[in-house]
Simulated scan of single mutants.
Amino acid sequence: MDNAKDNSFDVVVVGGGAAGLAGALTLARARRSVLVIDSGSPRNAPAARMHGYLGHDGASPAGLLAGGRAEVTGYGGEIRPGTVVAADRLREGGLLVRCGDGSTVRARRLLVATGLVDELPAVPGLRARWGRDVLHCPYCHGWEVRDQPVAVLADGPLAVHQAGLWRHWSARTTLLSHTWPLTAEDREVLAARGVEVVEGEVTGLVVDEDRLAGVTLAGGGERRCRALVVAPRFTARSGVLTGLGLPVTTLERDGHPIGTCVDSDPATGATALPGVWAAGNVTAPTEQVAGAAAYGVRAAVAINADLIEEETRRAVEAYRVGE
């Protein structure tokens, strides 16, 4: 593995979450010089525990990342705090990665694992309880609130779908109509599943001893609940990729936008940009931690194969000249 003393690396990984670290670990073990540039703002930072990751169920997200960083550096990979603001193609090949502090590094290949931002509905108090008792994924949190009063906020086209999902974990699931117009078919589906519809716009949260106790409704009423389910807008942190010319794809449900992502090959993470791969939530918004890590590994394998092809081609050219 090169020591990257000239500030050049085989691969620069943008983002130090599960996808980025898994990719970096795989590349470091493949004897590649790897630099991870991490802004230190993982999507799941508000959550105290993560679930569904075999062998790590209930583990701290921060603990998982700390262990991952130690593993990457243990194989010679390098991790630097910072924010990548742009990347430019070099005439001689590769990319020049520009950071917010003005520093630059060179990369033969780029793996973007910047994740996404969860944009929450405009209800006061949601952000402070996000990942605690304001939730969105039943596979991440359903078990923890099973059989408790769960309220689903109807703020977009996913509301009825979410209510049907959460009803599986708790028969005490209600749907708060809030600002989303429900059709007659929606109401029929909800009634068939035993999901009560509570009319009225939600104006705030009721918190008792640092635990969600309910929501307030326009007109002064309240609805008690122990968990509030929302559908965030998944907005990809795509600045580096769009700056290189890769457009953002709008995600839709029933013709309504629910977020953005960047396109990549689902098997390899390769984007339409030569030498650039993407992994994790920036390209697959619904992946949980385990899935994001798997994306990072697949992308790393593809990147190493691509580098070997390039090195083999150059070796053959040099061999022919020497004959």
Rank of each mutant, 00 (worst) to 15 (best):
V206M: 14
G23E: 03
A293R: 11
A70Q: 15
E317R: 15
L182R: 10
L25A: 11
A213M: 08
G200W: 09
A45W: 10
T250H: 07
V197C: 06
V84N: 03
E185T: 01
G269K: 00
G156S: 10
V321T: 11
P285R: 10
T286V: 13
R320M: 07
V276M: 08
D118K: 13
D210N: 11
L27F: 08
A184W: 02
G245N: 13
V123N: 15
V276W: 04
V202L: 01
T249D: 05
D57A: 12
A272G: 03
I303K: 08
L217V: 03
A294G: 04
P257S: 09
G76E: 14
A86S: 03
C137E: 03
R91Q: 14
P157H: 12
V145E: 14
P42R: 06
A70T: 11
L251N: 03
A154P: 07
S39T: 05
N44L: 02
V282F: 06
E317V: 15
A113N: 13
L273V: 03
V207Y: 03
D101P: 03
E144Y: 14
P266C: 00
Q148S: 06
R89N: 10
R106N: 00
T260E: 15
N7R: 12
D186Q: 04
A278F: 05
A227D: 08
P181N: 05
V150D: 02
T73Y: 02
G15L: 14
V282G: 04
A45Q: 11
Y319S: 07
G20H: 12
V13Q: 10
M1Y: 10
R167Y: 01
G219T: 09
D155V: 12
G20Q: 02
G220T: 05
S60C: 03
L205Y: 08
G68Y: 08
G296L: 07
L96N: 07
G77K: 13
G194S: 01
D208H: 15
L205E: 12
A87K: 08
G102L: 06
D208Y: 07
R298S: 07
D263R: 15
V85S: 08
I37H: 12
W143I: 01
L217A: 08
D306Y: 04
S264V: 06
V134P: 14
E323M: 04
E209D: 12
G94R: 14
G296E: 06
S170E: 06
V36R: 05
E317Q: 15
G291A: 08
V72H: 13
V301L: 15
A290D: 14
L27Y: 11
A318I: 00
A154D: 07
A300M: 10
Q148I: 05
A113K: 09
D263I: 01
L228F: 11
L120E: 05
T283K: 03
E119H: 13
S177V: 10
E201C: 01
R224I: 01
E71D: 09
T104G: 00
C225Q: 13
V150Q: 03
D6G: 04
C140V: 05
D10I: 06
L217W: 02
L27Q: 09
V276F: 00
P42V: 09
I37D: 00
G245C: 15
P46K: 15
P232Y: 01
V14H: 13
L153E: 08
E311N: 12
A191H: 04
A305D: 15
N7K: 03
V301W: 09
E222H: 05
G259D: 06
E209N: 14
V289R: 08
C225I: 09
S8W: 03
A184G: 04
V34M: 09
E92Q: 09
